[in-house]
Design a protein around this nucleic acid. Sequence first.
DNA 1: ATGCAATATGAATCAGTTGTCATGTTAGAA
DNA 2: TTCTAACATGACAACTGATTCATATTGCAT
Lengths: 214, 214
Amino acid sequence: MTLRKRSLPPPKTGRGEMTRRKILDAAKREIGRRGFAEASISTITAEAGVAQGTFYIYFRTKEDVMRELVLHMGRMLRHHLTEATAGAKNRLEAEKLGLRAFLDFVRKNPDLYKVVEESQFVDEKVYRQYYTDFAKSYRIALAAAEKRGEVAASKNGVSTEVRAWMLMGISVFLGQRYGLWDPKTPLEPIVEAAAAMIAHGLSPAPGAAPGRAK
Amino acid sequence: MTLRKRSLPPPKTGRGEMTRRKILDAAKREIGRRGFAEASISTITAEAGVAQGTFYIYFRTKEDVMRELVLHMGRMLRHHLTEATAGAKNRLEAEKLGLRAFLDFVRKNPDLYKVVEESQFVDEKVYRQYYTDFAKSYRIALAAAEKRGEVAASKNGVSTEVRAWMLMGISVFLGQRYGLWDPKTPLEPIVEAAAAMIAHGLSPAPGAAPGRAK
DNA sequence: ATGCAATATGAATCAGTTGTCATGTTAGAA
DNA sequence: TTCTAACATGACAACTGATTCATATTGCAT
């Protein structure tokens, strides 16, 4: 029964709901732009168009907002990815569609993305949970695909988990490099290249002629 | 000629050198443990066994220390990886040895690792430089391996770069999951699984029987 | 209409920093 | 030995920004 630090009760009226959302939205932009340390409550409330004290009606601390935003990102991203991969014929196609959708998401929501990454240094627990949850769905999806013979069978107990974390790392790094830092470059060739690597790895294609000199 | 904010002159005596190193070391531990925001100059100097003011003889700000530590990590890691992959027969083997060495490094230097990751929110420039530099050496190594036919030829211009970032993402995420968060688990099976995936991807091995039912 | 709970205000409080500085101390060159 | 630049000290001035709180205001249920 460790119910320490309950979250504040949710707003009871429509007005409250609106205000809370305005603050959350301003916080997302502000923290995304300036980072957690630089973002001040006064700036956030100013941007939201409310008084300083109003913040504390809905959130206990600045950290609270981070937690909330991480959960929010999780929900949004999950939804986005579910939609994007719904029509996939197999796991490999799902990986490709998912990566593409993820990069799109990052470009459309750079603030949210940065908030999640920074949450690791504000509330490590929520950050771990975020990735651990993703890893879990990933593991399940991969295990199912293994059963169906769509991906190579794992050699040992850990390998599905390892693959899940590798795939997350790939997405996060490509998201950082091409989603955040280089938001103009066309995504197609990137996704193409990444999907090929995910499917076949670095090895020279065994079927293809290995040494076509000249 | 934008020489703004020159770094402080280096110590001129052995004593100064020692003191500077003690501070840097304490800062590494302190920031690694408590994070950049929580780490205070007074705590760092206390741990280093010097007075508060001494800090400012060697560093302008806390951010300065971060920058220095990121560069330090870069040098140490590069050295560690170079040694570890020296005897590799080919790129695939180098990848495996490199990953293994990286995970070792993370387990031995968790503070330094965390400092580098947090630097992204303290001085984004130095963080980008860190990974951009690594990506560059990676690209060069991959391109050479392609020439030698050790890895699949890239299909288009971006693909070598994409591969480099994917491989870095893989390392960082496995480093986080198995190096930092789960520092006891044996690394062999993890490296084994990861190397297989890096070599062949997710696709069922084309040689292996795809549907050995029951 | 009226009364109460919910919501809103923003000045004041409060805690904790950083970075400075006037004053020693040290070591090694001459 | 003496002299001086380098190094070290630690108290504290100045600042910052989060959080509190006494005081309005709002709007819905009755």
